[in-house]
């Protein structure tokens, strides 16, 4: 019978031998799901039928080249009660498809069905567009009292809202809040903020930021999904990094877009971060025969100019 001490020695020897195990990077991927069709199509109410993309997934172990993933020989249609829109492959961009003939406008509260056929493969998805969305007002709130300091000029009030004095917003001064007339049939809302002056300077300034941090700032970003239950949506200042003209879009989302955005680890996260731990999950794809997003939204926007904070 082995003595306790010998058992211990044997175990330790095994343990030390096991130290030599090393991880090969390729082992960190799961079974490859390559060549799955990926649809990328979003309809915006009141706007023409958009360009859409059809690509395939790639094995993550291999070097990724987006151009190689485009599907060029698909037969794609989008059907609604108002008619059928056929798509043709854009010869300039592999995987991009453009509507053929007279391009219809996306109607509110309408169901659309997309079908893509590639040889024997068939991908399909449906969306029901929400009703129109209208921003009622955009206000600057006092950050302490939360009282309205002033209203911004909307595009519906002035085509050149950017030059309006009320739309000159000082960085970190007050809180910007959009007040909406909720869209019929919207599952939720999402915001995007885009800096339009591509050469403008940073307004963000902090000693704790390294050059790499500054390099990582992007001029366009989107928010997680919002319920917007009371129709009031505030802009977080951490979304703003640059001076100059900005456009703040609010989207009223259909169910597909809403479900995708709220389950997308790229915009979600928590715990270990975005692409790790329990937050790393497969987004909710409402697509048969593939993955991706065929969604719709109604959108309204407001423009303003960000001025650097005094003393910077």
């Amino acid at each position: 019978m082995l003595t306790f001490g010998r058992c211990l020695t044997l175990f330790l020897a095994c343990g030390l031998l096991a130290c030599s195990a090393e991880r090969k990077p390729g082992e960190l991927f799961g079974s490859a799901e390559s060549d799955v069709l990926v649809i990328d199509a979003q309809l915006l109410v009141g706007q023409p039928m958009p360009a859409i993309f059809l690509r395939r997934t790639a094995d993550p172990r291999e070097s990724y080249d987006l151009r190689m993933q485009g599907v060029i020989d698909a037969d794609i249609t989008i059907r609604s009660a108002d008619g059928l829109t056929r798509y043709f492959a854009d010869p300039e961009s592999a995987g991009r498809y453009l509507p053929a003939g007279t391009v219809p406008v996306v109607a509110p509260l309408t169901e659309y069905e997309l079908v893509a056929t590639v040889g024997q493969e068939r991908l399909s998805a449906r969306t029901r567009t929400p009703g129109p969305l209208r921003i009622r007002e955009v206000v600057v709130l006092d950050e302490k009292s939360l009282q309205v300091r002033r209203n911004l000029v909307l595009f519906s009030e002035s085509a050149d809202a950017f030059v309006a004095a009320d739309n000159q917003v000082v960085y970190l001064d007050g809180l910007l809040e959009t007040r909406l007339e909720p869209a019929t049939g919207a599952a939720g809302y999402q915001l995007s903020l885009a800096s339009l002056d591509l050469a403008s300077d940073f307004v963000i300034e902090a000693d704790f930021l390294e050059q790499d941090d500054y390099d990582d700032f992007e001029r366009e970003g989107s928010s997680p999904v919002l319920d917007g239950a009371e129709g009031h949506v505030r802009m977080p200042w951490f979304a703003v990094a640059f001076a100059g003209r900005h456009i703040w879009r609010t989207y009223a989302l259909d169910q597909n877009w809403y479900d995708f955005a709220r389950t997308d680890p790229q915009t979600g996260g928590g715990g270990f971060g975005q692409l790790a731990g329990d937050a790393f999950q497969r987004p909710h794809f409402a697509v048969q025969g593939g993955i991706g997003l065929f969604g719709s939204a109604a959108v309204d926007s407001v423009g303003f100019v960000v001025l650097p904070a005094p003393g910077t």
Partner: peptide, 24 residues
């Protein structure tokens, strides 16, 4: 949870293409 595929989808709210990995 490992990644099982790589693909590209636009951020629907910005239209900017995003390279992504698909969770197994």
């Amino acid at each position: 949870t490992p990644a099982s595929a790589r693909y590209t989808l636009r951020d629907p709210a910005t239209g900017v293409p995003q390279d992504r990995v698909l969770a197994a």
